[in-house]
Amino acid sequence: MHKTQKDKPFYFLVTATFFLSLIVVGVGAYTRLTDAGLGCPDWPGCYGFMSVPQTESQLQTAQAIYPDSPIEPVKAWNEMVHRYIAGSLGLLVLMIAVMAWARSGRPKLLSSLLLGMVFFQALLGMWTVTMQLMPIVVMAHLLGGFTIVSLLWLLRLWIQPKPLFYQDGFKTHLSLSSRYLTVLKSVAIAALIVVISQIALGGWTAANYASVVCTQLPICEGDWQGMFDPRAFGLIQPQHSSYEYGVLDYAQRVSIHVTHRIGAIITTVFILVLAGLLWLKPPLRRYSIAMIGVLSVQIILGITNVLASLPLLIAVAHNVVGLILLLTVVTTCYRLICDCRSPLEVKYFASESATHG
């Protein structure tokens, strides 16, 4: 029996932490989309308290400390709930790192990288507030959250029980031609880069409040080509007292929105090409089906966001499904590069190798 099968506590901890990280991303998207990113003007507390001020004396104290930030309880609670859940995630990641270093055979480097990423994400969370929703920080915070989820997923893939064939160094890729395997890996990596770039574009669109500037399909109404302004993508923007609700002009927001839509088309092409290549090998078709299924849902959500002017729950789902699409590509890259296959795949490729001997 493989050693990871005997390490169930660590595996269950990583799995639970992964699912909590998905919740954190969803709640984070909800917080951003309800304009609650500055629901509390300080960090990590709220108006000088560790919870949202509620009593009359607390409200008076909070207003005295932050006279320019009137208290909005709903937004403040949205922000604090997100912080509480994110804090719980941080504690679980710390437990993962401690357990990884406490026993041999556990992935110490990946666990340590994950812990470091959580600390950096906490800094980004603080800067998001203290820098008044500066777009580059908001986008980095989104990417940081997606990175943490992806690292947790990779850690779970790494420690999950593996087939006996793999323990003996059995190379399932022997049934694939070297050229085909190289093409498959290259396309998978390219698709991963494209998906990450599209997620970054989505984060930049949201951070600059450009999500609803175009209301027509497939691209945008008006002379969007004539309005296109490359300055919209300058990561360092002029200093403002607050970036809430955006500081770019209409043409710049249209430029961002249109680029995100074009990016969606490019992403779709890459995912479909990768899915087509995976479909050619029956055991890999489940990855192909998963990609196409998630991509289809994401396209529907994106179209709905445009036609219905960014409904809150649809917009949150668009964030989460985008993350799930990333995870499907991450999983495919991991399987192809690390050659860590399921028993079904091992059996299939073994028979193919014997047949073509």
Rank of each mutant, 00 (worst) to 15 (best):
A29Y: 01
Y243S: 06
S186T: 15
F146G: 00
L152M: 09
S88D: 07
V52C: 03
T147R: 00
I71P: 11
S178E: 10
A251F: 07
E352C: 04
Y348A: 09
I314H: 04
L157K: 10
G302L: 02
L94C: 04
S197E: 03
L91N: 03
V129F: 00
F270D: 04
C333S: 07
P135V: 11
H318I: 05
S177K: 12
P161L: 00
L92Y: 02
Y180V: 02
L277V: 07
V346M: 11
F349G: 01
V321T: 14
T172M: 09
R103I: 08
P343W: 03
L327I: 08
R103H: 12
R261F: 08
G48N: 08
H356V: 10
G276T: 11
G28Y: 13
L151R: 02
P41E: 10
G90P: 08
V194C: 13
L274N: 00
A251Y: 06
M117G: 14
W204H: 15
P311M: 10
T31Q: 07
I300P: 01
R261K: 11
L110W: 05
L92H: 07
I299H: 06
L310T: 06
V273Y: 07
L142E: 08
L313F: 14
P161M: 00
R32A: 06
I265D: 11
T332D: 12
N305C: 09
F146H: 05
A354S: 10
K171Q: 11
L313G: 04
D42L: 10
L33R: 00
G125R: 00
